[in-house]
């Protein structure tokens, strides 16, 4: 069963007098448990595609369905529920809540979901241990390095075991060691927990981890290749 089905997605933005085609008739099927990288230069439409699949932005035309449910037809509240219960986001620039500690940031999604406090604490401590930040649970984002913040963001994205993780340039602000650790964590989650990953990147090191590499340019899919791992 195709977990995500994108059909003829179109999205244009107006920039002054110019109209920019961010997505130009993009169609894509993503299998459950896939590990896919979207690559392409800046402005190729990678982030826009992630935002559309995550219900963060509205399409001009086309259809997106996740497990058969039409995302593009959902109301704001239903989209919020979809993101809350089924999708984990990892953004390029960490995007942690500055007034919350590392553990509280990880717990945030579970809090919104209404998970009981004891369970939240147990799960958040377990995931922080998994990302190597158990001893930093009480630190605020400003007291963490860029790599540590990104690992907290990843922990938050996966702690409630979403079916899908959408990661937008997750290694863009990381050094090579941190980037390697992060990608290994993604692979481990993908292989052991069957979490589907859709990662936008133009980092060649990240692309090497992908089972499937989708290249985009000017809002179009220009190639879609299965990669054989080394």
């Amino acid at each position: 069963m195709a977990e995500i089905k994108c059909v003829e997605l179109c999205k244009t933005y107006r920039q002054g007098d110019a109209i920019i085609k961010a997505l130009d008739h993009v169609s894509l099927d993503i299998e459950q448990g896939a590990f896919i990288c979207l690559s392409g230069p800046s402005g190729s439409g990678k982030t826009t595609l992630l935002n559309m699949i995550g219900g963060l932005d509205a399409l001009d035309s086309g259809e997106i369905s996740i497990d058969g449910q039409r995302v593009d037809l959902l109301e704001k509240g239903a989209l919020a529920d979809l993101r809350l219960h089924h999708i984990g986001f990892v953004f390029q620039s960490y995007n942690l809540i500055p007034v919350l500690s590392a553990r509280e940031n990880v717990e945030f999604v579970m809090q919104v979901q209404g998970v009981p406090a004891a369970e939240r604490r147990r799960k958040s401590m377990a995931i922080l241990e998994e990302v190597g930040l158990k001893d930093m649970e009480g630190r605020r984002p400003s007291q963490l390095s860029g790599g540590q913040q990104q690992r907290v963001a990843v922990a938050r994205a996966i702690v409630s075991q979403p079916k899908l993780v959408l990661a937008d340039e997750p290694t863009a602000n990381l050094d090579s060691v941190s980037a390697k650790h992060l990608m290994e964590l993604f692979v481990e989650l993908n292989q052991n927990h069957r979490v589907t990953f859709l990662i936008s990147t133009h980092d060649e090191r990240v692309m090497r981890y992908a089972q499937r590499l989708v290249r985009m340019r000017d809002g179009k899919v220009v190639s879609d290749e299965i990669q054989i791992s080394d």
């Binding site: 919020a80 993101r83 219960h85 995007n95 809540i97 979901q113 938050r156």
Partner: peptide
């Protein structure tokens, strides 16, 4: 503004 956007992206309702 970014935080409010983030909270909504994570599933918090307006």
């Amino acid at each position: 503004v970014r935080e409010f956007g983030l909270m909504q992206a994570l599933g918090m309702k307006p």
